[in-house]
């Protein structure tokens, strides 16, 4: 089964985005309309395959996929990008672009130095708060340290990603059509 998958990937004339999903998985259903829209947009240029995670556990293990939905972009049979969790169309678009071009998508989020500085500052503020036994001002310092440290890794946090994409979708929601209005 596994070899068959990789063989098919290699022989496929077009780049492929593979959607690893399961019927019981809510976030998988949530991204379905987005995936349909994108696959229609990229029809003839990028193929979309759906793989039921329940039916192919060995394949998922060999690809080190530990959560669904996971989308993996392949160009010439080689993985170029992957994304786990529900996401907005804007977040899924780079996967299709990566599959098409074969270039790894540019990772958004803080640069390495920013991450390092924020983590260092967050840790230092945390240590200061511990020294002050979290009393009064030191509790504020601890909170500040947490915020600074989180700002270093926010883009890697699945909870933040899920919440922010929901929030963005809510904010950009088109006004509902009121029949008879």
């Amino acid at each position: 089964m596994e070899n068959n998958f990789f063989e098919r990937l290699k022989q496929n004339p077009r780049p492929v985005v593979v959607d690893f999903w399961a019927p019981w998985c809510g976030p998988c259903r949530a991204i379905e309309p987005v995936m349909k829209k994108l696959s229609a947009e990229y029809a003839g240029r990028v193929d979309v395959w759906k793989v039921n995670a329940d039916e192919q556990p060995d394949l998922l293990r060999s690809l080190r996929i530990y959560g669904i939905p996971t989308l993996v972009a392949y160009h010439n049979g080689q993985e170029v990008a992957r994304r786990t969790g529900a996401a907005s169309p804007a977040a899924l678009l780079p996967l299709f672009e990566a599959a098409l071009s074969g270039d790894k998508p540019v990772r958004s989020g803080p640069a390495a130095l920013d991450r390092l500085l924020r983590l260092t500052a967050g840790a230092a503020l945390g240590i200061l708060a511990i020294q002050g036994h979290f009393s009064g001002l030191y509790l504020f310092v601890a909170g500040l340290g947490l915020v600074v440290a989180f700002s270093a890794v926010y883009d890697r946090c699945p909870i933040y990603r899920a919440l922010s994409s929901r929030l963005k979708a809510l904010l950009h929601k088109e006004p509902a059509n009121h029949p008879g209005a």
Binding site: L113, L117, T120, A121, A124, L128, G132
Partner: peptide
């Protein structure tokens, strides 16, 4: 520049340690 930023963060931590740390 990067060196400027690193120096500021280190200096900031040292000064905060001296002040908030009770030194």
């Amino acid at each position: 520049a990067n060196w400027d930023r690193i120096a500021r963060v280190v200096l900031g931590i040292v000064l905060l340690y001296l002040g908030l740390g009770g030194v």
